[in-house]
Simulated scan of single mutants.
Amino acid sequence: MKIKSAIIASTIATAVSLASLSAFADGDKEINTNHGDNKSESHKKGGHHKHHRGFKKVFAQLDLTDAQKTQLKDLRKQKRDGSLTRESFKSEMAGILTAEQNAKLEQIKAQRGEHKQGRKMKREQMKSLNLTAEQKTQLRDARKALKEEMRSQRKEAMTAKMKSILTAEQYAKFETFKK
């Protein structure tokens, strides 16, 4: 009986961990390469452009000058059109950045690698549980419910924050814009 309770507790803890990882990882998904007319759901929701936001997010931490931003933008354009290989892009980029910026970029890459390793380890741990199809379904449903609950709480918090900032008239006008 104790083993069964321990497995259930472990499964629930894992579900909660996976839900939080899933919510965190949503912004970290692979680039969608479907460029045809049949766009996938993530592409329609902006998934195609998530890599661009990630790029901007990383480079925002490097305190780039305007000249560096322009050079990197041109460099990315060259890579996109195929005139630069991945290796030449990296070496050109390293030449644009200062030594401190290159060091910071390497530090950011290392942190991302650690995060990916942690996700991989969680997946392996889940596989080692040898869950039944029913348990997997229950966990998936629990993760979806938790994700939806978290989304709802964020929405409620944002609504409360907006109501505290805006006047009643402004909030009413805002509500009409949403519809």
Rank of each mutant, 00 (worst) to 15 (best):
F177H: 07
A67W: 00
L131R: 05
K29Q: 14
L75E: 06
E92W: 03
I12W: 03
R86C: 00
G47D: 09
Q101G: 11
T167D: 03
T176F: 01
N102E: 10
K147H: 13
E134H: 02
S91A: 09
S10Y: 04
N32I: 12
E156F: 00
R123V: 15
E106N: 12
A145S: 13
K161P: 00
A67G: 01
K44N: 12
S40L: 14
M158Q: 07
L139N: 11
K122F: 14
Q61T: 11
Q71K: 09
L72F: 08
A23I: 15
Q111V: 14
R80P: 01
G27A: 05
K147M: 06
Q68S: 05
T70L: 12
H43T: 13
K56M: 15
T65F: 06
R143Y: 00
L129E: 07
K147R: 05
H52S: 06
I96D: 02
Q68E: 11
A94H: 09
E87A: 15
M162I: 11
G36V: 05
Q117E: 13
A110N: 01
K116S: 10
Q68N: 05
A13E: 01
D74H: 09
S5K: 06
T70G: 05
L105D: 04
S40N: 08
V58M: 13
N130H: 12
F174L: 15
M150W: 00
K29M: 11
E30G: 07
E92G: 01
F177K: 04
K109Y: 06
A160C: 01
I31D: 05
T11L: 11
I165M: 10
H43A: 15
Q107G: 07
A23C: 02
A103K: 14
A133E: 13
S88K: 13
K144L: 13
E134F: 04
